[in-house]
């Protein structure tokens, strides 16, 4: 019940961001000095900011970057973590030890500080945020997928595939990867909400996408000084982050529950 609502809302939020130009006539970037800090009304449902820009339109366009960055970082982390986890789990031995030492090293640092450290190396922007989230994020995928591969490797059907003369590459691609998919998607679902929050935190600290491009985090960061005179400038962007993150986390929980049921069968 709850999970269906979450998935539907997630699709709705994503579509609304993608088709933002069809939904709003206001430009998210152009400054309009005639309508500065207007409270929510019929023409501006979420109000306007200190430069007269419609907040709803900025949230819709901002979703493209915020959700886009979280999903991109999630997919890249998954691919990297899957590759490392497969290599470490399947081949074992010294490669496994070296790779897992690297993974443990990354996981043992405070993740936000590590992301901040990585993001100052590159000029602030969308790609830097993706790199910062991915550089920290792949490690937990790698650790979980490695564990999954370790148990899959011992299965009888892998032995029989080997006895039939399958190469390592064929076993990995045809037999191991498909069986790693449920876990991969569960972890992805559970992590996306967190990546959205990390993205908005980095934007909030000024290390994310740069103005005038709106992201939800930077909208809160830039507008926080107006919280007294125009609280709507801060409230709605945060609600957008919160709602989307709730949907991602409910989706992750739903995937987890579904998968566990399948195991019991």
């Amino acid at each position: 019940m709850g999970s269906k609502t979450a998935i539907a809302s997630l699709i709705l939020i994503t579509l609304a961001s993608v088709f933002a130009p069809l939904l709003t006539d206001y430009d998210p970037i152009r400054i309009d000095l005639d309508s500065i800090k207007e409270p929510p009304s019929f023409s501006h449902p979420f109000g306007t900011d200190n430069k007269g820009r419609d907040i709803l339109s900025r949230i819709l366009y901002g979703g493209r970057l915020s959700i886009g960055i979280a999903v991109t970082a999630g997919v890249i982390s998954l691919c990297l973590g899957l590759t490392v986890g497969l290599i470490a789990g399947y081949f074992g031995g010294k490669i496994d030890m070296a790779l897992m030492m690297l993974v443990d090293l990354i996981l043992s640092f405070p993740s936000l500080l590590l992301a901040i450290g990585i993001s100052i190396v590159f000029p602030p922007g969308i790609f830097t945020v993706v790199i910062a989230i991915t550089a920290v994020g792949w490690a937990s995928f790698a650790r979980l997928i490695r564990g999954n591969v370790l148990s899959l490797r011992e299965c009888a059907y892998i032995d029989s595939a080997r006895a039939l003369g399958c190469s390592d590459a064929r076993i990995i691609i045809k037999h191991i990867i498909p069986n790693c998919m449920p876990l991969s998607f569960i972890v992805l679902g559970l992590k996306l909400g967190g990546y959205l929050l990390t993205e908005s935190a980095l934007s909030f600290l000024g290390l994310g996408a740069q103005p005038p491009m709106p992201t939800w985090g930077s909208m809160i960061s830039l507008n926080r000084i107006y919280i007294l005179s125009a609280p709507w400038m801060v409230i709605f962007a945060g609600l957008a982050i919160f709602t989307t993150a709730v949907c991602f986390n409910m989706l992750g929980d739903a995937l987890k529950d579904k998968w566990e049921v399948r195991i019991e069968k």
Partner: peptide, 29 residues
């Protein structure tokens, strides 16, 4: 059955910096 799980999902989904600003707005200003 649903309320506590919803609260805990909400808790891990809330951006802390935003929560901080909202609490500051309500309780301080």
């Amino acid at each position: 059955g649903n309320f506590p799980s919803f609260v805990s999902i909400g808790g891990i989904s809330i951006p802390v910096f935003w929560l901080g600003l909202i609490l500051m707005y309500i309780f301080s200003f």
